[in-house]
């Protein structure tokens, strides 16, 4: 009897629609209608369902860039992206930046620290993810290109200049590594 019930549940689970997300290299399968609702944003899923609270929610309406994560290498606003839209995608968040083997900080993180590129730190995860996307596609950006790439990320504390310095410095560090 019990076995039959288990079969039923397992069967139901098999038939349930799942959203598959690869986040920082790890595969997550989330059951639609249970762990993910059609109206859940990626920011919500990351933070409240998966406990990945490194991604911050500022405005929650696409104006500040605090929630920036990378989807297949491109920066997106996770507060404006529905989790169901991310099925099968590769997501990178701030939690994935540490070198998983050595525990070392990513050069962008190091450069942010050395340049004093944050104060309250609320915009920082989003800033770092936007910087990562930029340096991935352009390892040697000019100041103009940096300003352009960071223009969707607001910071009320630093006045941005220390952030530009940090990205320049990070680019140098990363070029040195390859």
């Amino acid at each position: 009897m019990d076995e039959g019930k288990n079969d039923l549940i397992n069967g139901a689970r098999m038939r349930m629609q799942k959203i598959k997300l690869t986040i920082n290299g790890k595969l997550y399968e989330l059951i639609l209608g249970y762990e993910v609702q059609p109206w859940h944003t990626l920011a919500f899923t990351l933070r409240e369902k998966l406990g990945l609270t490194g991604t911050k929610i500022g405005c929650d309406r696409g104006e500040c860039g605090a929630c920036t994560v990378l989807m297949d290498g491109r920066p997106i606003l996770s507060c404006l992206t529905l989790t169901v839209e991310c099925d099968g995608k590769n997501i990178e968040t701030i939690e994935g930046l540490l070198n998983s083997k050595t525990g070392k900080l990513h050069p962008i993180q190091e450069a942010f620290i050395e340049s004093g590129a944050f104060q309250c730190g609320f915009c920082t995860p989003g800033m770092i993810m936007s910087a990562k996307a930029l340096l991935q596609r352009n390892p040697n950006p000019t100041l103009e290109e940096i300003r352009e790439a960071m223009s969707g990320n607001l910071c009320r504390c630093t006045g941005y200049i220390p952030i530009f310095n940090a990205i320049m410095k990070a680019a140098e560090k990363m070029r040195g590594m390859t």
Binding site: T53, I94, L105, F112, I113, F118, G121, T124
Partner: peptide
């Protein structure tokens, strides 16, 4: 650098 740097850059 800020004493909480590590926490702030890693989220």
């Amino acid at each position: 650098p800020c004493v909480n740097s590590y926490l702030k850059v890693t989220g």
